[in-house]
């Protein structure tokens, strides 16, 4: 077992570049606006990082780039650019700098920025432009009396997930598995989150009545599931320490995501689920998970 001898900045840049295939697929489905969003978010994050640390060389550590890319990818393509900039600013300042910089933050910076914009400007995020209409998760969330089976025939649904999002998710699944294969991220975090999301969905799936929560396959390939599972939950800074706590943490985020998607007011609750999970980290760190005492 040979670990890649990479430095922290190299790791960050590797993660950032592995987001690019997903960004490309998203551009194909949602148009060039998502590219613009990503560029604005990355630019604002870098500027905020430089101004807060007064050190232009901070750009080379790559963490602000990853944060900016995650924000650009998770925000809907039709959002006004000033909101993207606000999300980036909030991510770096409220998500990272106030805690003392890289490595000390409790909450995932990208999710802090995203959640802030989501809470402050809900109409800009949940209402998509007229051409694409509502997202599949929106239809699921506000379906009223229709069954899930009927809802899944709405134009917002694709072949097996949400229209467009399914292939973006497949792209993130691919690059995420690449990172897992090279041991950049541990395998149990994404798997824990996906199982935590899909298993309850499978248990409560009754082939699509009006009270159903939606099929597990749909949940796995809708919204930002794969992006969150491979790029947000695996952020080492905001994850707990021991393996057992990490599995609990990831599974909990998966469950929270399903609960918010099915019963919450917001269509996609991954950001809130992640922030909720982050808030549990100090508690999870206190659990003594089989502290093996030295034997020799």
């Amino acid at each position: 077992m040979v670990k890649p001898q990479l430095t922290t900045p190299q790791l960050m840049w590797l993660v950032a570049s592995s987001l690019l295939p997903g960004l490309l697929v998203a551009t194909l489905y949602f148009g060039h606006t998502i590219l613009l969003n990503c560029a604005v978010a990355v630019g604002v994050c870098l500027l905020a990082d430089i101004f807060s640390t007064r050190n232009p060389r901070i750009v080379s550590d790559g963490s602000a780039t990853v944060t900016g890319l995650l924000i650009g990818l998770s925000l809907p393509p039709s959002i006004p650019l000033h909101l993207v900039a606000l999300a980036g600013l909030a991510a770096i300042l409220l998500g990272k700098v106030v805690f003392g910089g890289l490595g000390k933050n409790t909450f995932n910076p990208a999710m802090v920025g995203y959640a802030l914009v989501l809470v402050a400007f809900p109409e800009d995020l949940t209402h998509f432009d007229a051409t694409t209409g509502a997202t599949a998760l929106d239809v699921l969330s506000h379906r009223g009396g229709i069954t899930v089976g009927e809802a899944s025939r709405s134009p917002a649904y694709g072949d097996f997930g949400a229209l467009g999002y399914e292939y973006v998710n497949v792209a993130f699944l691919g690059t995420g598995l690449f990172l897992v294969g090279f041991r950049i991220i541990p395998w149990y975090l994404p798997l824990g989150m996906l199982v935590g999301l899909a298993l309850p969905a499978l248990l409560f799936y009754d082939s699509g009545s009006s009270a159903s929560l939606g099929s597990p396959l749909f949940h796995l390939f809708a919204g930002g599931t794969m992006l969150a599972a491979f790029y947000v939950v695996t952020d080492p800074v905001t994850a707990p320490r021991s393996v057992g706590a990490k599995i609990l943490f990831a599974t909990g985020i998966g469950c929270f995501t399903l609960i918010i998607r099915a019963f919450g007011a917001w269509p996609d609750g991954i950001a809130f689920a992640v922030l909720l999970g982050n808030a549990f980290v100090p508690l999870l760190d206190k659990i003594p998970f089989r502290r093996r005492l030295p034997t020799s």
Binding site: T8, G101, G103, K104, P236, R241
Partner: peptide
């Protein structure tokens, strides 16, 4: 660089 709590030290 600052510690990012990756936990590789604990693993090895």
């Amino acid at each position: 660089s600052p510690c990012i709590r990756c936990g590789w030290c604990t693993d090895v």
